[in-house]
Amino acid sequence: MNYDPMKPIWLQVATRLKRQIATGTLAPGAKLPGGRELAAQYGINPNTAARIYQELEREGVCATSRGLGTFVTEDERAVQSLRREMAHDALEQFLEELSGLGMTVGDAIDLIKREESNNDHMQTTDEEVRQ
């Protein structure tokens, strides 16, 4: 994993883990690597690794049972709210970039609609080719 050394490392790894949970790569109830293992896996300091789980737990994304380890939450609602939260973050980032390019929210919506119809068009073309 590549890091941006100007931003807190724990945050970057935490975000990646949250994405994996949101997309289902890490299934609900899946066991997460132990703190030291996480550190070795991601090449980060063990204290930083410990902090990651602290934060994720605080956000209700995972839970630690003493002696057993840390597990992804099985609470479906928690995962869904995580998805919403990450989608929201992605959207914010997208809108910020577009505003930097001088585009309004209206322009953004047009862009999205055009992108959608392009995709449909490409799908239809694929089907025609197949026939």
């Binding site: 890091y3 050394p5 490392i9 030291r36 550190a39 070795a40 090449g43 980060i44 300091n45 930083t48």
Partner: peptide
């Protein structure tokens, strides 16, 4: 080596590393 250092780092140990490879050290050191 990085893995080895991280595996060895523990609550009762002091690790001091010096390196010109600042990038390597960014994530390993706290």
């Amino acid at each position: 080596i990085r893995t080895c250092i991280l595996e060895e780092a523990a609550a009762d140990k002091v690790m001091v590393l010096s390196s010109h490879l600042v990038e390597e050290m960014e994530t390993i050191a706290d």
